[in-house]
Amino acid sequence: MSHDRLARIRQLNRARFKRHTGIYPETFTHMELVLDERERSKRKPGRPAALHIGKQLLLTLEFWREYRTFAHLGHDWNIHETTVQRTVERVETALIQSGAFRLPGRTSLTQEQNVFQILAVDAAETRCERPTRSQRVSAARRNDIP
């Protein structure tokens, strides 16, 4: 299914490609070349990736564009959600380090905008009104309580 998705996306015209992925086909190809170059420059390649470079890039673009959960993307791409997370992080890092694209740093991509509000609470200690010992005992001895 994921192979068909990449093939279908590549067949779209320029405007529809941009609408679907958020970037133009030329930029997609350039990003693929950067990722491919990074992959070839590894000294120890390690375990082969679950998805090839084009699919990894498309997966990352879908995450950026649609902001779906890793679990949903993993289900659609037939891979585990942690694999999706590692793939997105690896692609982001490679594209940022290349310097060829105007992407914010990782902290900007992952950092949420926090808005702080100040809330004043009067937390002064006051004695809690409790029944006296004799009132507690007398309440327990009443027979008129059903």
Rank of each mutant, 00 (worst) to 15 (best):
H3P: 02
D4M: 06
L6Q: 05
A7V: 15
A7L: 13
R8I: 03
R8E: 11
R10K: 15
L12R: 13
N13E: 14
R14Q: 07
A15V: 13
A15Q: 13
A15G: 00
F17P: 04
F17C: 06
K18G: 14
K18A: 11
H20S: 10
H20M: 07
T21Q: 09
T21R: 04
T21V: 13
T21A: 08
I23Q: 05
Y24A: 14
Y24V: 08
P25M: 06
E26V: 14
E26A: 14
T29F: 09
H30N: 08
E32N: 12
L33D: 10
V34Q: 02
L35H: 00
E37D: 12
E37W: 06
R38K: 15
R38D: 11
E39H: 04
K42C: 00
K42D: 00
R43L: 15
K44E: 08
G46S: 15
G46T: 11
R47N: 06
P48W: 01
A50I: 01
A50E: 04
H52G: 05
I53E: 02
I53Q: 03
G54F: 02
G54I: 02
K55Y: 03
Q56D: 01
Q56I: 01
Q56E: 08
L59S: 04
R65C: 05
E66T: 02
Y67E: 05
T69M: 05
F70V: 04
A71N: 07
H72A: 09
L73Y: 04
G74E: 01
H75E: 14
D76H: 14
W77H: 09
I79S: 01
I79L: 07
I79G: 01
H80W: 03
E81D: 11
T83F: 08
V84E: 02
R86Q: 06
T87L: 02
V88K: 02
R90Q: 08
R90F: 03
V91I: 10
L95M: 04
L95F: 08
I96L: 05
I96T: 06
I96D: 01
Q97H: 09
Q97T: 05
G99A: 09
G99E: 07
R102K: 15
R102D: 04
R102T: 07
L103F: 12
P104Q: 06
G105L: 06
R106V: 09
R106G: 01
S108I: 00
T110L: 09
T110M: 06
Q111A: 15
E112G: 10
Q113T: 15
Q113H: 12
Q113C: 13
Q113M: 11
N114H: 07
N114Y: 03
V115Y: 10
I118T: 14
L119G: 00
A120L: 14
V121T: 13
E125R: 10
T126P: 00
T126Y: 13
R127A: 12
R127V: 12
E129Q: 09
R130Q: 14
P131E: 10
T132Q: 12
T132I: 07
T132R: 15
R133P: 00
S134K: 12
Q135C: 04
Q135I: 07
V137P: 00
V137H: 06
S138Q: 13
S138P: 00
A139M: 13
A139H: 13
A139E: 12
R142C: 08
D144M: 05
I145E: 07
I145S: 12
